[in-house]
Write a protein that binds this DNA or RNA. Structure first.
Lengths: 328, 328
DNA sequence: CTGTTAGCGCCTTCAC
DNA sequence: GTGAAGGCGCTAACAG
């Protein structure tokens, strides 16, 4: 592997001159630049990224940290992040936090292998995030609240989403509305639940704790929760699932028992994942502005990197997507 | 930012000793190790990853290069790669090749910011791959053939897949079978088509070029191609779409014209994407061993990195998934 | 077991 | 406009 030294030698100049020439710094004569470039090509020279980063203490790349790279859910989010990142001439790498403390994500955070990070990964601790963030290493969190000067929060308004979903059900004449929850440690779940309860309250519908069934955001758990609901005999008028995956699991459970959606019972989900449009019946759900969340997050990172100030908290609103799983 | 020097000073030892202690090299007394660790914690020391990589000329991370990080298609593949990578104590980063020559992917390849790469991205040139690969930087390509000592090819047996799909249609009594193709520059498409033709030939079914309709792997193109097919009046008995996305577009076109699947016409796709199970009717298709492809690829990288020899070409076989889009 | 020291490859003052 | 030299933070001989 040729180094800049080799190039300099071959071009018959000093290393510094070669460096200037290669980096387009207006300090060398055109003739010299050409000589250097020629030598570089002849030697198939490629700069060593690490050495360069080490020296400049800047990587020009930002990381997107996800708990699971393979989740189809992130598609839109990634797109938003990617577009803005490259529009600003930065590089983006995605890394997974699987493995917790030993994960690639943790390593990149701790060792500052990037200039900033966007995090949507439960299994990265608040503590690590707080410790890692600093002026020249801003972090945006998408799934939690962290009180630190260099950590910004971009959130989807889950309370409003939960409220709208529930209100829709109420407006369609439903009163007895069950809530299938996400895991207890999920912020998102808590807020959706909060919205659900508020809507009930505001419309004079009474909430009883038996209406809350616990799930964990997986399809399987939605299936199980629904089975349980069915087994308990007295079925509610409608079910609000804290996410689409669980709703799809629920749909399956209902269909196995020949309970028709929406004739016998109405269903609404949350997220608007791609599948929701295709299941039978197509799922009425709450769309999250994922692309926007991604794009905004990177924007903020660049803002902080540029030394500008920014609000610490952002809330993006959701939108009801009406399809066919709610009785009219 | 504290450096190892600061730690050493605070612990009252030499830098090398601190380095050994921090890296768990059996050369320092337990007492010293403790002293050093204490100092490190007090100073909130974090090693600088670049400096470390620079010195070791090894990053312990491999890159997965995809043309579009946001494609849901890759889910399984990524999982395979991820699991094997972390099982070997390596880190994985995913990066996109959007932007071609200027992309993050290109930069990582050129600057050797990782120890090896797995590539599934049309817009990275063969030339760049050939130039980048070397003994200590093995590359696995998933979507093409490249003749170079340090580039390995892992492929799905598309010919066999195309053959099996077509044969299935023939076995079910179809004779007049259309093929909706992917883009012309796609290796995968070409092989699937090849399989299709072989199966026809082997079963004494004649192929005419009018049976081949061109598409480009997008849902939209499947929709358009199907519209065209319908407009031409004399509908075939069955359509083999070169991928599921197009088949799903086709399903929609048929449904708009009230052409029933599979009563009026049979359909088979290719890929077995998640959606295929949920569309109406559920799509009969060819499953690709994506997880296996990912896992195998990383395995091979590690093998080469360890200096072992490996076959240069691998072919993984596909499998027919029978659902409801083919008439019995 | 511990300390000294020489780079890894590059960038960047500072003199000339 | 060009060259010499120092150092980014870390590791790994080598000596003691």
């Amino acid at each position: 592997m040729a180094t800049i030294k080799d190039v300099a030698k071959r071009a018959g100049v000093a290393v510094s001159t070669a460096s200037y020439a290669l980096n387009g710094i207006q300090k060398v004569s055109p003739a010299t630049v050409e000589k250097v470039q020629k030598a570089a090509i002849e030697l198939n020279y490629q700069k060593n990224g690490f050495a360069s980063d080490l020296k400049r203490t800047k990587t020009n790349t930002i990381a997107l940290i996800l708990s699971d790279l393979s989740g189809p859910y992130y598609s839109e989010l990634i797109k938003g992040v990617q577009e803005v990142t490259s529009a600003n001439g930065y590089d983006l790498i995605a890394c997974s936090s699987i493995g917790g403390e030993l994960s690639t994500a943790t390593k990149f955070l701790k060792e500052k292998r990037v200039d900033g990070a966007i995090i949507l990964a439960h299994n990265i601790s608040d503590d690590l995030i707080k410790k890692s963030a600093r002026k020249d290493f801003p972090i945006v969190v998408l799934d939690r609240e962290i009180d630190s000067e260099f950590v910004l929060e971009v959130q989807v308004d889950n309370i409003q989403g939960g409220y709208v979903a529930t209100e829709h059900l109420i407006n369609k004449g439903h009163r007895n509305i069950a809530y299938v929850s996400g895991p207890y440690n999920s912020h998102d779940n808590e807020k959706r639940f909060h919205g659900y309860k508020s809507a009930m309250l505001d419309h004079g519908v009474s909430y009883q704790s038996r209406l809350k069934i616990s799930g964990d955001f997986t399809r399987e758990s939605g299936y199980r929760a629904t089975k349980m609901l069915i087994a308990q005999q007295n079925l509610p008028d409608a079910v609000f699932y804290a996410n689409d995956e669980m709703a799809i699991g629920g749909l399956q459970a209902f269909s196995e028992r020949n309970i028709r959606i929406p004739e016998d019972i109405s269903v609404v989900g949350f997220d608007d994942i791609q599948l929701s449009e295709y299941v039978a019946p197509p799922l009425t759900t709450i769309r999250q502005p994922k692309y926007e969340a991604g794009a905004l997050s990177v924007h903020l990172i660049f803002q902080l990197l540029a030394g500008e100030k920014a609000e610490r908290h952002y809330s993006l609103s959701t939108e009801l997507v009406e399809r066919k799983s709610v009785k009219n």
